[in-house]
Simulated assay, not measured.
Amino acid sequence: MGLTIGIDVGGTKIAAGLVGPDGTIGARTHRDTPANSVDETAAAICDAAAELIAGHEVQAVGIGAAGFVSADRSTVLFAPNLAWRDEPLGARVAETLKIPVVVENDANAAAWGEFAFGAAKDVEHMVCITVGTGIGGGVVIDGELLRGEHGVGAELGHMRVVPGGHRCGCGARGCWEQYASGRALVREGRAQAESGSLAAAQMLSVCGITDPAELTGPMITEAAAAGDPCAVELLDDLGRWLGEGLASIVTLFDPSVVVIGGGVSAAKELLLKSAQVAFERNLPAKANRPHPSFGLAELGNDAGLIGAADLARRPVTAARA
């Protein structure tokens, strides 16, 4: 199959691109996301796709959406940041555009992008973790995307790590993303600053702010890169939580490669070093089993778009050709 379109639907922006069989992106476009309106969101998706279709032979459209997607890759069962509830998005967009449409969870799409064209392109078993505001995850086993019986598998960020812990947006308590995500990093940084910690006050000064409420994840990362002790400690703690969770995930799936992406991965070695130490410390039977390699995602913010476009070429199975 030739050209396909990949569409990454976020809470504020819809990014679309024309993608070739080798994963390269040609034309691009974007639209704002009218997150409170199902009809307007579908219309914006169709409008972006139609712009790219004009003048090209496009075979299919792949849509990456944050939320639960049905096993038939057509219906968004639930989206935390959009108004989709049992929304037949695939059928609706296909009816308008008159070409096949595949809908996939955005983290699954990003994982597939890294598997097919990025950091895991040379293996058959991989786990991809996207560490942003929350944690997204995708798993590929024997060259196939793991989706589960109902299409909602591999929600790795909602693995329970602290019984009775912080309340998560999913409604449960103690989910992994409440301790190993950008949201957790900012929460802990602000808490230290509000406690009157002199080290945290120095970190705020390095960030050029005085109000803890203005602190952001990128600010902490930049301060850590500049050597600020408090920021380094915050990222080290985040890495510890990340590594401990990955030890459990590797025990379950035995991947060749663990790929870490998302905004927080910009911290690179400041995060990966402590994550790997915690991983090695907590992996069961660590002296008697092969260990996966760790690597940073290579496709950046385009991973979901590229992955969705490639999955649109594979409407029945996600097996590597």
Score class of each variant (00 low, 15 high):
residue 189 G to C: 04
residue 212 P to Q: 05
residue 232 V to W: 00
residue 203 M to T: 08
residue 215 L to Y: 02
residue 227 G to F: 05
residue 189 G to H: 01
residue 110 A to F: 06
residue 251 T to G: 14
residue 141 I to C: 13
residue 155 E to F: 11
residue 112 W to C: 05
residue 211 D to A: 15
residue 220 I to T: 10
residue 160 R to W: 00
residue 229 P to L: 09
residue 121 K to R: 15
residue 248 S to F: 04
residue 216 T to D: 01
residue 246 L to N: 03
residue 195 S to W: 11
residue 151 G to M: 13
residue 185 L to A: 11
residue 179 Y to G: 02
residue 165 G to Q: 03
residue 174 G to R: 10
residue 141 I to V: 15
residue 229 P to A: 10
residue 247 A to S: 14
residue 213 A to M: 07
residue 128 C to A: 15
residue 166 H to V: 14
residue 149 E to C: 10
residue 233 E to V: 01
residue 171 G to A: 11
residue 145 L to P: 06
residue 214 E to D: 15
residue 210 T to Y: 00
residue 201 A to S: 13
residue 235 L to S: 05
residue 151 G to N: 05
residue 187 R to I: 05
residue 207 C to L: 03
residue 235 L to H: 06
residue 114 E to Y: 12
residue 123 V to W: 10
residue 203 M to C: 02
residue 250 V to R: 02
residue 146 L to N: 04
residue 227 G to S: 13
residue 163 P to C: 14
residue 180 A to H: 03
residue 252 L to A: 14
residue 203 M to Y: 01
residue 225 A to L: 11
residue 159 M to N: 13
residue 173 R to K: 04
residue 113 G to T: 12
residue 226 A to G: 12
residue 229 P to F: 13
residue 181 S to N: 01
residue 170 C to Y: 07
residue 194 E to I: 09
residue 198 L to H: 04
residue 245 G to V: 06
residue 130 T to V: 14
residue 168 C to L: 09
residue 225 A to D: 10
residue 162 V to M: 12
residue 148 G to I: 09
residue 119 A to R: 11
residue 110 A to C: 10
